[in-house]
Simulated scan of single mutants.
Amino acid sequence: MKIDLSGKTALVTGSTAGIGWAAAKGLAESGATVIVNGRKEATVAEAVSTLRKQVPDAQIQHFTGDLGTAQGCAALVAAIPACDILINNLGIYGPKDFFETPDEDWAHFFEVNVMSGVRLSRAYLPGMVSQGWGRVVFVSSESAINIPTEMIHYGFSKTAQLSIARGLAQRVAGSGVTVNSVLPGPTLSEGLAEMLQDEVKTSGKSVEAVAADFVMAHRPSSIIRRAATVEEVANMIVYISSKQASATTGAALRVDGGVISAI
C-alpha cells in the first residue's frame, strides 16, 4: 500500500513534539503539505527545522498560536482558511484527585482538549464537504474508555472527543468526508521520557525498559507490555487520513497496545 497525499493540506494541532510531530512527519512523507502548530515561536521553528532535515522535500507551513482559546482558533482560520486534513491532536493532561480539582481546571481541560477540536472542525469541515473530500481525526486516548481515577477530568475530555467525532461523522454522512478518533495507549513521547528520567538514571536501565516497567505498573492489561512509540501511533493517523481509508468513519481506532480489555 502506497499512501499518496500529494496535493492535500494537513493541519496538525500541537505538533511541535510527541504524537503530533510524528503525525506531521508521516503526513509530510506521504506528500501532504503540513501545517505545524505550537504556542511558542521558538519550539515551532525548531520543529519545522527538524522536519525539513528529516523530510527534505516536505512542503511545510506553520502557525504559532494558542489553539486552546477561541481567539487562537480564529487567528489560525484567518491565516489558513482551508485544509483537507485536520488532525485535532492538541491536548493537555496531568493527574489531580477529583476532590482537589477546581472548576477552573475542568474548564481549562475542556477548552483545550475539546473546544479546540470543536472550533476547528466547525471552521474547516464545510470546505471539505463542499469539495467532496476531507479527513478529520481526533487524537483521543484509551483513557476515554478506561477513565483514570487519578485524572477523571482528563478522561472526561477524551470521552467527549469520541462523542463529537462520532456525531460529526454522522452529520457529514455521504459527503466523502470521514471523521474518526484514534486512541493511543501509553506512548513513549518526550513528556513520558522526561517524567521517567530519574528512574532511568537510578536504575541504569534504558528509557524503553523503564517505560515498559511503568506500563506494567500502571496499565497491567497491556498486551504488548511496553509503551508504544510515537511513530506507531502516527502510522494509524496517517492511514486514517489517506484515500485508502475512505470506508472507515465514525470509528474509535485503538493504538493502545491492547490496554482496553474488550473485543
Rank of each mutant, 00 (worst) to 15 (best):
L120N: 02
T43A: 13
G191V: 13
S181E: 09
F63Y: 12
H153G: 06
R219P: 00
T9N: 03
G167Y: 10
S157M: 09
N180A: 11
I35N: 13
A227I: 09
G38I: 11
A227T: 10
N180H: 12
W21L: 15
A23M: 03
T43F: 05
S221E: 14
A173M: 04
L196D: 13
S140A: 15
L162Q: 13
H62M: 01
R225W: 05
V136T: 07
G68S: 02
F98G: 06
A58N: 05
G68N: 03
A79Y: 02
G185L: 11
A227H: 12
S189M: 06
V77C: 02
A75W: 00
E194S: 14
P126R: 10
E29R: 15
V48T: 14
D66P: 00
F110Q: 05
R119D: 01
A45D: 02
Y239F: 15
S116G: 03
W21M: 06
A28C: 10
F98D: 01
A209I: 01
F109D: 01
E208C: 05
D57A: 14
H62T: 05
A47D: 02
V172Y: 15
A209R: 02
L120I: 10
D256M: 07
D57N: 13
G257C: 06
A247M: 14
T187D: 12
K40R: 15
H108N: 13
S130E: 15
G117V: 03
A22W: 09
E46V: 04
V34G: 13
A42V: 14
G176S: 09
A107H: 12
V12H: 07
M151I: 00
S141Y: 03
F138N: 12
D66V: 00
A252W: 04
A160I: 02
F63I: 02
V112M: 09
N180T: 12
D84K: 08
L125E: 07
E41S: 15
A144H: 04
L86W: 03
D198I: 08
C73I: 00
I240P: 10
E104M: 03
G258F: 07
E142W: 00
E232I: 12
T248K: 01
N88T: 05
R254F: 11
S163R: 13
R254E: 04
G7I: 07
L188R: 05
S181G: 08
V172L: 11
S30A: 15
P184M: 11
